[in-house]
Design a protein around this nucleic acid. Structure first.
Lengths: 193, 193, 193, 193
DNA sequence: GTATAACCGAGACGGTACGTCGGGTCTTTGG
DNA sequence: CCAAAGACCCGACGTACCGTCTCGGTTATAC
């Protein structure tokens, strides 16, 4: 299933949307942002790198951050856990979350930053990224024996909160961090890992 | 301790920096950002509102975000807990943190966002805001009976992480949130609220 | 022959330069300079008056004076003598020169002034204004019976020199001035007017 | 007679104007303008070069061009002919005029240019430079046998007009130019030089 | 001597224009 | 109707310079 909403089964006449161009734009956007940072990348630059015109970008995406969000999702880095309802234990789940977040760090940080100035983007970001990740973690926590709903929600905020917090502040999501956070999530009374 | 770094003890001749102007700029910056949002405020606008020249801003601050960080700190909103080494229990400490963060939310969010595009600002933000807050929380946690260093650090990341996470995503720092997070911090084995 | 140098015969795709905008800018520039004086007119003001963006001006003209030179030439005021190789007698030729120069005085003075600070503009001014006028006068002098080349060149400098001299010093190019200068140009030995 | 208007015979107390500073400013102004061109020189730069403060300049001169005009006159370059009512023949008088104008060309050109945007400066320029030169030339023409007032005035405009015209257009005031202009001034019927 | 006042260098100040840059729209030619 | 190219409007940016104001400090009279 494609990660965009437009249906290609258009009826009317006219040229169809070029799939190669769409992919080239997404790739160029992702690569440039990771390499040079979001703010240093211009729409014109992405278009040029993709061999596309600026208008082709704005025909299909509402704005630069919307494009970058799409690019992130398309690259699948965001699919921190591709097989969505994962049945892995919490520690390895969280490990994968951190690894993926580290890889996509420049894009994630830019998006969160832009989302502060752009309500629509913020909504998109929450719907397409944040909420999906929360759901996956909730499932994992249930399987890990966190039966109390309230505690589960608290842990969702604590774990993802800490991940973003460190990401945004340039602090590494290293093993020590991962271990410390996992320990927080241990159900009361459980003796060992 | 004053909130500015420049030393006022200049030796040489020449007109001194105008303190009224400095204060007017900081006030104008803070008020405009809170009222209209960071991105909608221009340097020229701040200067005009302060009855100052644009150059006077650029003479003393490296950029708009640097100014806003100063303005935030000056306004003391950042002093989430003015009596720094607080001896209050964790729950009321965290309550005050959340209340202050809610008040200054537009400024905090803008600064964190800009810091993603500006390394120097990020360093400033960490040194002048993030680290101070962490220290205060560490003290409070010690007094709350969290004796394990590692657990304490994990809680610092979890609590502040969750605060920022919700702040940046426009989710309220309400009583339910506060209660849930406090519960996480209860030392293992402590039986009740 | 059009008064612009850019070749409109572009091959490739892309939006064409907007002719209405070009004309609006030239008109706005000319009118504003005549009305308010060169130094009091800003690029932004010209752009606004023309309903154009500042960037559109800087895309096509190197600087404010370059634009004003173009505007002057476009307005045809510069065509002090539109039917270029004129066959009118010297006195009426010079009369027309003075009348046109008086009309365009603010623009001419500003351009000559700016040309003192800008080598490229000076070259443009000489090529597109000064030399053309000199040629027209040379023709007229030949027809007026000034056969000696050296004397002709001296008269060219004397007549145009005096015109500019008085123009720049705010002295009128009135009938008395015209008559006195014409008398200078009378070929030696010719008895009467 | 000094070339400034302020009378030093002040009554009251207070420090007297520093003559060394005054001279240093005039020299710095003249040299910088000749070397770098008027537009490229700032008031602050002149002050620094003279080891003076900006305020010291603005205390005594109304503006940058006023200062430069003074500097020109002080340097005596403007005193094209120091022994004012000269009794030399026209050809050597004009030769000296051209030589002096060539030396001071950058300053003269800048002043004439600035005068286009500044009415007060234009008046000063005419009174202190233009009119004095015209008077000297009138005397010389009388002695050269140009008895007709009208013709004399025409020649004044023609000769100085041509000098300025060539100066402003970067054309040399060379021997050929001088000879051609002198010839124009030969009284009707006079056979040789 | 001791006030008083104008000077001096230094440099911050309010203001205005500059020329550049990027976002997002519009308009061509061509497929 | 889509695509590349690129001109367009808009508006913020940070810089530069102008001429003024304000420092601490330095001469000079005038008392």
């Amino acid at each position: 299933m494609p990660d965009q909403t437009y249906s290609d089964a258009r009826a009317g006449p006219g040229r169809r949307r070029s799939e190669p161009t769409r992919l080239a734009i997404l790739d160029a956007a992702y690569d440039l942002v990771v390499r040079k940072g979001y703010a240093a990348v211009t729409t014109a630059e992405i278009a040029a790198a993709a061999g596309a015109g600026k208008q082709t970008i704005y025909r299909w995406w509402a704005s630069k951050p919307a494009l970058v969000l799409d690019a992130l999702q398309h690259r699948g880095e965001v699919e921190i856990d591709p097989e969505f309802p994962s049945d892995q234990p919490l520690s390895s789940f969280f490990q994968r979350v951190c690894a993926a977040a580290t890889r996509a760090a420049p894009v994630l940080r830019s998006l969160m930053a832009e989302a502060q100035f752009d309500t629509a983007l913020r909504a998109e970001l929450k719907a397409r990224l944040i909420e999906r990740r929360r759901d996956a973690l909730r499932q994992t926590l249930i399987r890990a024996g966190i039966t109390d709903l309230r505690q589960r929600e608290a842990l969702v905020l604590a774990l993802y909160g800490a991940v973003w917090y460190r990401l945004l502040l340039d602090e590494p999501l290293d093993d020590a961090f991962i271990a410390a956070m996992i320990e927080l999530a241990r159900p009361a009374g459980s003796g060992s890992d």
